[in-house]
Simulated scan of single mutants.
Amino acid sequence: MKRKFTAILCFLLLFFGLFSSAQNKYEREYRIRKIQFPKKALGYIEEKLTNARRIRFYKETDSLKISYEAKFKKDRLWYSIEFNQEGDLEDIEILIGAVDIPDEAFNSLKTYLSQYFKKYRIRKIQQQYPFTEGEPPEVTIKNAFQNLMLPSINYELIVTGKKEKNFEQFEVLFDAEGNFKSIRKSLPPNYDHVLY
């Protein structure tokens, strides 16, 4: 009887351990050179980079996939364009402030955050233009660079929140109306390059 109980307990611990880590985001960004960036991806954004400043290219390793990201500043806005390994567009994000979100949507997402966390602080807000199948990537790129308020956009928030005892960092995704879509625990930035 004791062995059966121990076996069941071990199984449950493994099951819940795997389940709880499935929502974690183990993401690390590494800066790369322009020649290491996928050529297909560069073809999509080359003309947009002509008047851009502070252009940086990154390779991002996630717990599930590898992607590439171009970050730059253009027309006083910070852009981040993400591509998969093959160079296909995944999404475009623009760094925004709370005032850039419509009041009704912002109140809705604040209500969700206050119910989910005991305390929270919004660290970063990005307006996300996801690439949708059946639509040419050029349309998504055009919409993002015109900064259009479309019903298909998402808001991605980086939030430091306290659920139980400690504060942790989360990536929370909401739709254009402020309805909750997903949440993932994220690791703090990689500081391996810092020597002590």
Score class of each variant (00 low, 15 high):
32 I>R: 08
175 D>E: 02
100 D>G: 01
5 F>W: 15
16 F>W: 09
137 P>Q: 07
116 Y>P: 04
146 Q>P: 06
127 Q>D: 00
113 L>P: 03
82 E>P: 03
118 K>S: 07
57 F>M: 00
111 T>R: 12
105 A>K: 07
58 Y>R: 04
14 L>S: 14
178 G>Q: 07
182 S>Q: 13
152 S>P: 09
177 E>H: 04
168 E>T: 14
125 I>G: 03
72 F>E: 06
75 D>S: 11
17 G>C: 14
172 V>F: 05
12 L>E: 14
155 Y>G: 00
36 Q>C: 12
26 Y>R: 12
49 L>F: 14
88 D>M: 15
153 I>W: 01
93 E>K: 09
97 G>I: 08
93 E>Y: 05
127 Q>C: 07
22 A>H: 14
178 G>T: 05
58 Y>A: 05
68 Y>E: 06
133 E>A: 15
36 Q>G: 02
136 P>S: 13
155 Y>L: 03
12 L>S: 11
31 R>E: 12
159 V>P: 02
146 Q>E: 10
6 T>K: 14
21 S>R: 15
13 L>P: 13
168 E>S: 15
146 Q>F: 00
196 Y>K: 13
103 D>N: 08
175 D>Q: 01
143 N>T: 04
53 R>E: 09
69 E>M: 06
49 L>M: 07
109 L>G: 00
33 R>F: 05
148 L>K: 10
37 F>Q: 05
8 I>S: 06
15 F>H: 14
35 I>Y: 10
138 E>C: 11
50 T>G: 05
129 Y>N: 01
150 L>T: 02
64 L>F: 12
71 K>N: 10
87 G>W: 03
49 L>K: 11
70 A>Y: 04
128 Q>K: 07
186 S>R: 13
55 I>K: 11
105 A>Q: 06
90 E>C: 07
143 N>V: 01
94 I>Y: 00
183 I>D: 08
65 K>M: 03
166 N>Y: 10
173 L>S: 07
14 L>A: 15
